[in-house]
């Protein structure tokens, strides 16, 4: 109660929140209504994009924008695939391990990197994403080189292999719910309060006794670990990875999803992914134009809805109130 009352931004529109939750449940059920394998596939991709973007959102909550997010998805993907195929580790252990590996890498590079702010951080993470791709290409014995690694074993839980899309979808939905619940908990707890303080006013946060460097690094580690976690699921679902799968275009698409959905709200990544992932998939013939479509959407959102789609209801309600 007390945390809600002191952070009104998260708990204000409770009726709107209920409507939103019902809409989400209905949307999540759509593939079962249609029964189409293609729709199940899209739904899985929406969940994975939402999960990775939620990780990126965590980093955005401390006011930083990482363009290396795709590389962290890649680190998780490779970590899991190598653990499963080379060491015979069960997927259910490889999955959290891949999150830990990605988080550990983020911790090590985050310390020196996060001293840079704003556009400098964006540029250096962009360079790191390219570095990841190039380094992986240099070590084909690990990464499969430019031809990648194919035939990755499917997700298997306690010996049960998830062969078909509907099963993978259920698993991915549960994992997404878990990640969102974790982020909700963090956001409404002491660390989330520090994230908000750092995002709003870094200098004042530091002067109020908040260790801002450590706080930003915590967000970077958590967000990147979630990216790694997503990467593991993605690799075992799609069955193929290569260094090119995690090129900077992937990072850019996460940024666009996040900004479109709303970078400062918890629901933003979900909304962004639901809106943007199916778009190029349904416009099959237009798939090569994915980046153009994303670019246009991004420009429209930045121009008309800087808070992202998540801010739309409040904006509409707000203008209604001032109009009436």
């Amino acid at each position: 109660m007390s945390t809600v009352s002191t952070m009104p931004a998260t708990g204000r529109v409770s009726v709107g929140g209920a409507v939103f939750a019902i809409a989400l449940v209905v949307l999540a059920l759509v593939p079962w209504f249609t029964g189409s394998t293609f729709h199940f596939h899209i739904a899985i991709m929406v969940c994975l994009a939402a999960m990775a973007s939620a990780g990126l959102a965590t980093i955005a909550w401390v006011g930083q924008l990482s363009l290396a997010h795709g590389a962290f998805v890649g680190i998780g993907a490779y970590a899991s695939v190598l653990l499963v195929t080379r060491l015979g580790v069960p997927f259910l252990i490889a999955l959290p391990a891949s999150a830990i590996v990605a988080g550990a890498v983020a911790y090590l590079i985050g310390k020196p990197l996060l001293r840079l702010c704003g556009v400098y951080f964006v540029l250096i993470t962009f360079a790191l994403n390219e570095l990841f791709r190039l380094v992986m290409l240099e070590f084909p014995s690990v990464s499969g080189g430019s031809s990648g690694i194919a035939g990755i074993p499917k997700i298997s839980l306690f010996g049960i292999v998830l062969e078909h899309q509907p099963e993978v979808y259920v698993f991915t939905l549960v994992m997404l719910a878990f990640v969102m619940a974790l982020l909700w908990t963090i956001r409404n707890g002491p660390l989330g309060r520090r994230f908000a303080a750092v995002e709003e006013n870094l200098v004042l946060a530091e002067a109020s006794g908040i260790p801002t460097a450590r706080t930003q690094n915590a967000a970077f580690v958590i967000g990147s670990a979630i990216a790694g976690f997503t990467g593991a699921i993605m690799a075992h679902y799609i069955g193929f990875i290569s260094p090119e799968s995690f090129a900077f275009q992937l990072s850019v698409s996460y940024v666009i999803i996040l900004v479109t959905g709303g970078r400062l709200s918890l629901a933003g990544p979900l909304i962004g992914a639901i809106f943007l992932v199916p778009l190029p998939e349904f416009l099959r013939s237009a798939q090569q134009y994915q980046h153009i479509i994303y670019g246009v959407v991004l420009i429209l959102v930045l121009r008309f809805l800087p808070g992202g789609l998540a801010a739309l209801p409040r904006k509409l309600l707000g203008s209604e109130r001032s109009g009436g």
Partner: peptide, 9 residues
């Protein structure tokens, strides 16, 4: 200097 988006409390 304040945290502009947060309440006074």
């Amino acid at each position: 200097t304040t945290f502009p988006k947060a309440s006074v409390r």
